[in-house]
């Protein structure tokens, strides 16, 4: 044995060095891999919670309807019934989740521009969609002088 080892000793030393490095790596790996890694797949489970934790900015129409049920009722049967409130009124989670929502009164949309975001003429829009050229539609006044935005049909 001693005789065998004599001319291989340096190899054994190198082998021990490699084995040591491998052991250090395995220990470091065991310590450093996030504990919640791999439960549902190759990722950190906590990343799901991280993504969930992002704050809301848009409240969602249901939250609006909780208080503004009169508006919901007024939109019944109109072409605009299905449109989310925040499509025109903007993101309002701050208003909806405030202790006193009336203190954070949202600004009304500017009727001179808001209607045309959707209804300005454009050849790429679906053919049946109501579109206008503001220069030759109406009398130059605000859209709301003829149309109720919550129920735009002129009866």
């Amino acid at each position: 044995m001693r005789e065998w080892l004599r001319d291989r000793e340096h190899m054994v030393r190198m082998g021990i060095l490699f084995a040591g490095a491998l052991a250090v790596f395995l220990v470091a790996r065991a310590v450093m891999v996030p504990k919640d890694f791999g439960t549902y797949g190759h990722f950190r489970t906590g990343a799901l919670a991280d993504n969930m934790a992002h704050p809301l900015v848009f409240a969602g129409r249901q939250a609006c309807g909780d208080c503004h049920d009169d508006i919901v009722a007024s939109r019944k049967g109109s072409k605009h019934e299905q449109i989310g409130c925040e499509a025109c009124h903007g993101a309002l989670e701050a208003h909806a989740s405030a202790d006193d929502p009336s203190a954070l009164k949202p600004k009304l949309p500017d009727v001179k521009t808001i209607c045309l975001v959707c209804h300005r003429e454009n050849v790429a829009k679906p053919a049946g969609f109501p579109q206008v050229d503001p220069k030759d539609h109406g009398d130059g006044g605000p859209c709301t002088s003829c149309h109720n935005p919550h129920h735009p049909e002129i009866s």
């Binding site: 004599r6 001319d7 291989r8 000793e9 340096h10 190899m11 030393r13 190198m14 060095l17």
Partner: peptide
């Protein structure tokens, strides 16, 4: 760098070469 080894006997070098 020699890992503390001082052995450069013919046999050890032949082993080195084989590996």
């Amino acid at each position: 760098m020699a890992l503390g080894s001082d052995n450069i006997s013919e046999r050890s070098l032949r082993i080195d070469d084989k590996v």
